[in-house]
């Protein structure tokens, strides 16, 4: 074995490893990025607090039981009643109509784009879908009122009201299709090509490969797309404000006008309720309920995604 010269420690000044550099740029970038992340977290807390404080005052006047379980919502009347069920019913009916449009059509377009379309079609259609996501919702609102109700629904259902849940729900569904389609398509495109090859090599058709290999493998992403679509439907405001009417109405009949939680908030907040009054605080109570519902939806989706998540290798 050859002898190796023991490295003699050089004088501290000569040590090539000990060049202290400030690298201030790194610190600045890190601070900027941390601030960016902190803004959204802080905003969430801000929203929760700004909802909670007026809601607590509200619930000191009106019991939670009365709020959640009575059936008349007339906060602006001389004899105000605060039973939120009509608003929940309106939100529920319109959301159900919207997702029965958005989920099948969104998933269908995603399967088509990911599994059947040529790459040329995909390259054209996907950006168009994403542009559709950017159309302002108020435009969809007037589309529902003027086109869907007047030109399509009235001739078919003569008894339908001018403001009705059906047209608002259908148009909201159309509006959400691009969101569902785009996210579901991303999830399916992320399924490794090897899985498709494996199915084709067994003599599976495109349909069998798409339905029985690709969709199950992409299920967590598809479920996430559905949940985001549902959350958008619950939270959507302009379409329902414009097209569904502003009458709280405890019914499941989609031909009638309804008010949703969001359209109540929009209408009351733009009306002339005085700050600090119980009517004013009811806006925040409804907002808090909406927040709790969407939060629960998101929590559920995270659980579903974890449960069905598949790791590819």
């Amino acid at each position: 074995m050859s002898t190796l010269a023991q490295a003699t420690p050089a004088a501290a000044d000569d040590n090539p490893l000990r060049q202290v550099k400030a690298r201030n740029g790194e610190k600045v970038i890190k601070a900027l990025l941390a601030t960016a992340a902190a803004v959204s977290v802080a905003t969430t807390f801000g929203i929760v607090i700004s909802l909670l404080v007026p809601s607590i005052t509200f619930f000191s006047e009106i019991s939670i039981t009365e709020f959640l379980f009575t059936t008349t919502w007339t906060p602006l009347f001389a004899n105000p009643q605060y039973g939120v069920l009509p608003l929940i019913a309106g939100t529920f009916v319109i959301t159900i109509i919207a997702i029965s449009v958005a989920i099948p059509l969104g998933l269908g377009s995603a399967v088509y784009l990911s599994e059947f379309a040529s790459s040329k079609v995909r390259r054209t259609v996907k950006p168009v879908l994403e542009v559709l996501e950017g159309v302002p919702t108020v435009v969809y609102g007037f589309f529902a009122l003027e086109f869907m109700t007047q030109l399509i629904l009235r001739p078919i259902f003569p008894g339908i009201q001018v403001f009705n849940a059906l047209s608002a729900g259908l148009v909201m569904g159309i509006m959400i299709i691009p969101t569902v389609a785009s996210l579901a398509e991303d999830a399916m495109s992320a399924v490794p090509g090897g899985l498709r090859d494996g199915a084709y090599a067994l003599g599976a058709t495109k349909r069998q490969t798409a339905l029985r290999v690709v969709i199950p493998a992409a299920l967590s992403g598809i479920v996430a797309a559905f949940v985001l679509g549902i959350s958008r439907a619950i939270g959507e405001t302009m379409v329902v404000t414009v097209a569904a009417g502003l009458m709280p109405n405890l019914t499941l009949n989609p031909f009638e006008g309804m008010q949703t939680m969001t359209s109540y908030i929009a209408a009351a907040a733009s009306g002339d309720v005085s700050t600090g009054s119980i009517e004013y605080q009811s806006i925040f109570a409804v907002g808090l309920l909406l927040f709790v519902i969407t939060f629960a939806m998101n929590a559920l989706s995270i659980r579903l995604v974890r449960k069905y998540r598949q790791t590819y290798q």
Binding site: L202, G203, A204, A217
Partner: peptide, 29 residues
């Protein structure tokens, strides 16, 4: 492809149970 099977470089098992992986081909055929 049904008569001429293929095995790939990466073991491309389906995200299913062991049983369902074997049963997939007979089912689709």
């Amino acid at each position: 492809r049904r008569r001429i099977g293929m095995v790939f470089q990466k073991p491309n098992v389906f995200p299913k149970s062991i049983y369902e992986n074997v049963a997939y081909g007979p089912k689709v055929n």
